[in-house]
Nucleic acid binder design. Structure first.
Length: 570
RNA sequence: CGGGAUGUAGCGCAGUUUGGUAGCGCACAACGUUCGGGACGUUGGGGCCGCAGGUUCAAAUCCUGUCAUCCCGACCA
């Protein structure tokens, strides 16, 4: 492709409405253009990248034995009623009416449709296992789309669904997908961590996320990971031991103390001259319209996703001071267990507290010297605590680190959640009809490409991994009016084209600086510059990723390029 | 949905306080000079100043409403 013909416009400035690196870079380098909030046009360069990611996915999915199909984006209400998600999925599901007032939705995911496909098409265990996948646009009406391609309302996703006759079969399918995913991301030039996570709205028992760990502030997930071993977990699912802390308040007597206007743990700890870890913290949440009191140790924080799961809640939010007053009849800041009227649960962190401090359910006073079983009954215990960095790795015991992660893929063991509700069954070997044991497996295609930009860039632009770069090499004749330069450039260009290499020739009559800036910004992995030194028979061979450069003969540059593109390095 | 901010040319911005013919840089077109890290000069094209009302002789500017975008939170995976 000749640069003079390429449909692209690079910008001198970053767009002002972009926040994260990948968004800024992709807009500035002319890869994407926003049509409306969370909805983007993939311009030719971007589309090439996406097609490459898709190609890798297809090759690996096909190799794993999965089969590609394409389901409709438009889905009828009835199917979602069958699964029960029409009411549960919420506003994120984009719904609309057709001219006959029939309700339809744009698919945010395809469990319902694929279950229908299986129900229609699979009769016998002899047809199992089967894994079906598709690559298409998905629609989710996010409350707050942001971060460019990392969180759009319309995005490209590969979703696969496995059907097995048994749990053992599902586990095997799941394992195959886990391995396939690791290979897919590796081929895209991305190292991923397989992270245990919460199953969220999709449901099911076991799930893992594939995370690209990034230093930039662009992941939406906090990931605890171990540098010593493979352990990694989304903080919403981490199970770690707390660091040692003082849990005995040392009080000898259970009594009320005056704590005027002391409302936070920090203030209370300072006022009483005690560690926050001997305070039993009370947090009130409104859970599906009802108040719930959660007790947790003062130095610990609540993890809402865990809370949502243990309460089997659809919706929860922290209660306002007004609501606390209304439901519990006490000022926020002094809530405790005394005569409390709503549902109460506690985090495991409070279990070992002795002679501790707790709110008295009365303004301006707290209890000190409280003990479980004597002064208060220990509420039912759950794990609703947010794990913190520095806590020990559950596998090897080393302190965990925390970083941001971009979730590029996830895999779920769904079990019979959908097949049972939607009556999707097969005849098993014993002649009995049984619901399919299902798994589902997603990859954010557009997000994967954006994650690569988050991971690989510098101040000058994108550094595409060569496997997914829009073009593999760019040839820059410094001066297009120089006959010798152009002759060598054209010869190399044709040679690469004949070898099936995706090559750009910057034949624009621009100054060298402009061409270099554009090449860096767009992020083409290999650059061959043909300038003055061509008189001595030398061109410049430069790698975008490493910045390595050498002056060599054109023939050598050609060979170096092929070697690099065929090598394992990114 | 709560809090904050911003809407002026494709992109980045000034002008709004104090109402008086809409500007700058980049990009685009033409010509000339220049030519290895975003050149320079001259000329030119491009705007319903987000939208709708209102005040006024006169509104980008003041008032009301509305829509959109961005940030923080809530939410979501």
């Amino acid at each position: 492709m000749k640069m003079s013909k390429l449909f692209v416009e690079t910008l001198r400035d970053f767009p002002s409405d972009a926040e994260v690196v990948s968004h800024k870079m992709l807009v500035r380098a002319g890869f994407i253009r926003k049509l409306t909030n969370g909805v983007y046009t993939y311009l030719p360069l971007m589309w090439r990248v996406l097609k490459k990611v898709e190609k890798i996915i297809r090759e690996e999915m096909d190799a794993s034995g999965a089969q590609e199909l394409l389901m409709p984006i438009i889905q009828p209400e009835e199917l979602w009623k069958e699964s029960g998600r029409w009411d549960v999925y919420g506003k994120e599901l984009m719904r609309f009416k057709d001219r006959h007032d029939r309700m339809l939705a744009l698919g945010p995911t395809h469990e319902e449709v694929i279950t229908w496909v299986a129900r229609e098409g699979i009769r016998s265990y002899r047809q199992l296992p089967v894994n079906l996948y598709q690559i298409q646009n998905k629609y989710r009406d996010e409350i707050r789309p942001r971060f460019g391609l990392l969180r759009g309302r319309e995005f490209i996703m590969k979703d696969a669904y496995s059907f097995d006759a048994s749990q053992e079969g599902l586990e095997k399918s799941y394992e195959i997908m886990a391995q396939t995913y690791t290979r897919i991301f590796k081929r895209c030039g991305l190292e991923t961590r397989m992270v245990r996570s919460d199953s969220g709205a999709i449901g099911g028992s076991l799930s893992h996320e594939f995370m690209v760990l990034v230093e930039t502030d662009s992941g939406e997930n906090d990931v605890l990971y171990c540098e010593n071993c493979d352990y990694a977990s989304n903080t919403n699912h981490a199970k770690t031991e707390m660091l040692p802390a003082v849990t005995n308040g040392g009080y000898t007597k259970f009594e009320l103390v005056s704590t005027p206007n002391i409302k936070t743990i920090e203030q209370l700890s300072e006022f009483l001259k005690i560690e926050p870890s001997v305070i039993c913290k009370s947090i009130v949440y409104i859970v599906d319209e009802n108040p719930v009191l959660i007790m947790i140790r003062g130095d610990q924080n609540l993890e809402e996703t865990k809370l949502k799961n243990v309460l089997r809640a659809n919706e929860l939010r922290i209660a306002s001071a007004l609501e606390i007053k209304e439901y519990l009849g006490v000022e926020a800041g002094f809530v405790g267990l005394k005569h409390v009227k709503c549902k109460v649960i506690a985090d495991y962190s409070v279990k070992d507290l002795k002679n501790f401090v707790i709110g008295a359910n009365k303004a301006d006073v707290h209890y000190i010297g409280a003990n479980w079983g004597i002064d208060f009954d220990l509420p039912e215990l759950f794990d609703v605590r947010l794990s913190q960095k520095g806590e020990a790795c559950p596998i090897c015991g080393k302190p965990l680190k925390i970083t941001q992660g971009i979730e590029v893929g996830n895999i779920f063991q769904l079990g019979t959640k959908y097949s049972e509700k939607m009556n999707a069954k097969f005849s098993d070997v014993d002649g009995v009809e049984k619901p399919f044991i299902m798994g589902c497996y997603g990859i954010g295609v557009s997000r994967t490409a954006a994650a690569a930009v988050e991971k690989f860039h510098d101040e000058f632009g994108i550094k595409w991994p060569k496997q997914i770069a829009p073009y593999e090499i760019i040839i820059i004749p410094v001066n297009v009016l120089d006959e010798l330069q152009m002759k060598v450039a054209n010869e190399l260009y044709e040679k690469f084209q004949n070898a099936g290499i995706e090559v750009l020739l910057d034949d624009r009559d621009e100054r060298a600086g402009v061409k270099f800036k554009d090449a860096d910004l767009i992020g083409i992995p290999v650059r061959i510059t043909i300038g003055k030194t061509i008189k001595e028979g030398l061109v410049e061979f430069k790698l975008r990723m490493s910045g390595n450069m050498e002056k060599v003969e054109p023939e050598k540059a050609y060979k170096l390029t092929l070697d690099y593109l065929n090598s394992d390095s990114v």
